[in-house]
Amino acid sequence: MPEKAEPKSNYDRLLTHLEDGSLAYQLVQAHCDHDTTDPTESMMTVLRERLGQARRSIDGPEA
């Protein structure tokens, strides 16, 4: 019996080739989040959070 076609989306495939936890992985995951109605805004949220982390890291313990 032939193998049944695997209903895997391109996004799912992409995630398997990205390092778990990397910024690329987080962005793609945010884009694919089923709960979101605005994928671009979800990715922007990830980017803003990353920017916030970078600010705190540069600002040091004083902040």
Binding site: H17, L18, L23, L47, L51, A54
Partner: peptide, 27 residues
Amino acid sequence: IERAARVAVGKELDAALKQIDRAKDQV
């Protein structure tokens, strides 16, 4: 601080795009 943070995340984003390009080819 704002400039340094944006530069750092910009570099990460460049790296992320390169990773996505490679992953896209693999897909």
